[in-house]
Design a protein around this nucleic acid. Structure first.
Length: 709
RNA sequence: GGGCGGUUAGCUCAGUUGGUAGAGCAUAUCGUUGACGUCGAUAAGGUCAGAGGUUCGAGCCCUCUACCGCCCACCA
């Protein structure tokens, strides 16, 4: 009996030894020239904004199970690690640290010095994250690690930008965008988080009309009053008719506009518009070619148009403006219980102010000549519709189509410093777009950077070396599986389909598996502000990586949120202990002589076990990891340990024949071996450790063939 | 306003094509020095949110309702 088995299982020692051996021996390395069928996947790159939480740990666990199962099924597995620079999130994080520690802003430091600080922060965050992922036992091919902002990815980003610019899909335009006055940058539509609030709703007299608004402070420049062309109440007014009305700071000339987008049932059916600060108003103004004069500046302060209120911040000015309106008798009534949704920045929480700005956009409705005149929307929709890309669970396909239908041109330029600078240079009125800077003098590069999802969108192929025509790209793209959270279906999955379809003319992956959000015991989303973040390392140190992995996977169906508690993790720690002790008994009593025939009863037990094998294999093939793990757990403990081992024990102590005893010993050896192989994707450390002790001359358990009958 | 998910034992959740309700944790009692006290055995605990329908048979399929949660949407 090996003395290592006599001691209780000690996760820290065994896990460190196992991980050290795996990494050192290159066990996770993909081999592009392997004759085995390829299997490919990329790790959704975590943001370098701090540490990983249990949600990340669940993601790594699911993907590691997929990768290890594929390896055990005899495939050449490529699983690429990487991290994401998360432009805005990381910059905002460092800016707030800087402000807290020194009271300085990024402008006090200047672009170069500030970026150096961001890099330092990103590097340390990266190191923590990589350590966390390794401690989970993830079988990633580390030498291929990528960063969304490294040199290879920089070249990919510039190449992609130039290609789409040359295609005429990337353009510069004056459009209404989501502006964050605090972070001083634009934000894409998908990043807007709408927050419901109860506010006052004001009914204001505007000449002969009564108009409603929740934002009186934007109303200074309102010189258009809009109504539905069929509204009988306003039949006497003609489209384009002008009239003078008394307004906040004196009389102004108002123009009547008739537009069918107006809801006759809402309020009075008449409204004034603020095209410079509201999407709907901007659209109406565009349809009728109206002015869109700004009222609010980029800091959120009122412009000279606001007369005596110029320079005041909109938040402070509102009550004063309402007071002025009341004094003039222009307030008809106030509804104090108006429910209204306010756009905020999901990457910082500040209220956003729509602004008309000159920005760079990616056109989603423009035909792309290189792709048979299909638009990006069509290119995104078609592969999911045709089933070329399969989304699990299926219900997300519908959500995906709905998102595409509502999609507007994507604003890709950001006024922040951390990120890929736009590969665009200006000289007077000239614009140059290229992978390298122009050589002749006088050109100035655009100071803006790209939306972080632009580089993430290239991830399925930029990690494989694109735009170089690499062996990896040929062999592993499209990826076999894309596993990620349903919360970034639009941000990321959709953008990868867009980029791969547009730039490579192929899908980025064949199968999308979406997992849910890991919540705390109370069902709350884990977040730093709630203080309920659990560091996976704490749990690994306390219960071991295998126990944590099992706790994270069991009870977690695709696309469903799950809850995690320490009690659950502890429960699986006990299972790991059970595996250790049962293995100890079997190894001590096993019969490794493969030729011993099994008795009919033992053969029957083995046949039943084979049914489990088929069941578990089917679950893994169908991405039902939680069921596979649960069935193995249940069988190991309540059938193998409780019944099979117990009955063999009795036979060994009883008066049965030696052939019967040998048969029992062999049944134990066969069953344990296969159980360990099947448990390996879920609990790689303990199964590896037992295997090393039991069968030191055989290959690593992760390369043992999957027991399919 | 549109769409989606959930509602099963005290708690967390399974229940894959409809065939007499399951697991873990927690609880109670008993037991156990040879694989394992990080254990074993036993027990208690559910009109499967509610109503109606299809069926020989419904937790599962259909309709409606309630509550919880999520996503999307230019009601100013």
């Amino acid at each position: 009996m090996d003395e290592r088995l006599l001691k209780p299982y000690d996760p820290p020692t065994s896990e460190a030894a196992a991980q050290g051996l795996w990494l050192q021996s290159g066990a996770f390395a993909a081999n592009p020239s392997s004759p085995l069928p390829p299997f490919s996947m990329v790790l959704p790159p975590p943001n370098v904004t701090g540490i990983l939480h249990l949600g990340h740990a669940a993601m790594v666990t699911i993907e590691d199970i997929i990768a290890r199962y594929a390896r055990a099924s005899g495939r050449d597995v490529l699983w690429v690690p990487g991290t994401d620079h998360a432009a805005l999130a990381t910059q905002a994080k460092v800016e707030s640290l800087l402000h807290k520690e020194t009271g300085q802003t990024r402008h006090d430091l200047g672009r170069d010095k500030f970026l150096a600080q961001v890099e330092t922060y990103a590097q340390s965050s990266h190191d923590t994250i990589v350590e966390q992922i390794k401690r989970l036992g993830a079988s990633l091919d580390w030498p291929r690690e990528a960063y969304t902002l490294d040199a290879t990815r920089e070249r990919a980003v510039r190449t992609a930008f130039k290609q789409l610019y040359d295609d005429g899909l990337i353009y510069r335009g004056h459009r209404l965008v989501n502006w964050d006055p605090r972070l001083q940058t634009t934000v894409s539509d998908d990043e807007v988080e709408w927050v419901e609030r109860e506010e006052n709703f004001y009914y204001l007299k505007y000449g002969p009309f009564v108009i409603g608004t929740a934002r009186p402070e934007t109303k200074f420049g309102d010189k258009y009053v809009v109504m539905h062309p069929d509204d009988a109440r306003y039949q006497q007014y003609e489209h384009g008719q002008k009239l003078t009305v008394e307004w906040i700071s004196g009389p102004i000339t108002a123009t009547i506009i008739k537009d069918p987008s107006i809801d006759m049932a809402f309020g009075t059916g008449a409204m004034t518009i603020t095209p410079a600060h509201d999407q709907a108003d901007f659209d109406i103004a565009t349809r009728h070619q109206l002015d869109h004069e700004p009222v609010i500046d980029l800091d959120g302060k009122l412009l000279p148009l606001a007369g005596p209120f110029a320079g005041a911040h909109i938040k402070k000015a509102r009550p004063q403006i309402v007071a002025t309106l009341e004094a003039k008798g222009l307030v008809e009534k106030v509804d104090p219980r108006y429910h209204h949704r306010i756009p905020t920045n999901s990457r910082g929480g500040e209220v956003l102010e729509p602004q008309v700005l000159k920005q760079w956009f990616l056109a989603v409705n423009k035909p792309l000549a290189r792709r048979g005149g299909q638009t990006l929307k069509e290119l995104m929709r078609q592969p999911v519709e045709s089933g070329q890309i399969k989304i699990t669970p299926d219900r997300f396909s519908k959500i995906y189509f709905h998102w595409i239908d509502n999609l507007r041109d994507w604003c890709i330029s950001r006024q922040i410093w951390y990120g890929h600078r736009l590969p665009v240079w200006y000289r007077g009125d000239e614009i140059y777009c290229g992978i390298e800077a122009p050589i002749d003098p006088g050109w100035e590069q655009d100071p803006d950077t790209l939306d972080t999802w632009f580089s993430s969108g290239l991830w399925s192929f930029s990690t494989l070396g694109w735009p170089s025509d690499t062996q990896e790209l040929k062999r592993y793209h499209p990826l076999t599986v894309m596993e990620t959270g349903y919360d970034i279906l639009f941000f990321w999955v959709a953008r990868m389909i867009l980029m791969s379809q547009a730039l490579r003319g192929e899908i980025p992956f064949r199968q999308v598996y979406l997992h849910g959000i890991v919540r705390d015991e109370g069902g709350k989303k884990m977040s730093k502000s709630l203080g309920n973040i659990i560091d996976p390392l704490d749990m690994i140190n306390k219960y071991g990586a295998d126990a944590l992995r099992l706790a994270l996977i069991i009870g977690t169906a695709a696309g469903s949120d799950s809850k995690i508690s320490e009690e659950k993790i502890n429960g699986y720690k006990r299972f790991i202990n059970k595996v250790w002790n049962a293995s100890r008994f079997v190894i001590e009593h096993a019969n490794n002589n493969q030729t011993t025939p099994l008795t009919a009863a033992d053969q029957n037990t083995l046949n039943e076990f084979e049914a489990l094998t088929r069941d578990v294999t089917g679950d893994l093939e169908q991405y039902r990891f939680y069921l596979a793990a649960e069935k193995l757990y249940h069988y190991f403990w309540h059938v193998f340990a409780d019944k099979i081992i117990e009955s063999v024990k009795e036979r060994l102590h009883g008066q049965t024949s030696s052939t019967d005893q040998d048969s029992g010993r062999q049944l134990l050896a066969i069953t344990l071996g296969r159980l360990l192989i099947m448990l390996q994707p879920f609990a790689p450390h303990i199964t590896h450790t037992i295997w090393q002790i039991w069968k030191p001359d055989q290959p690593l358990i992760m390369f043992e063939p999957w027991p399919m009958s």
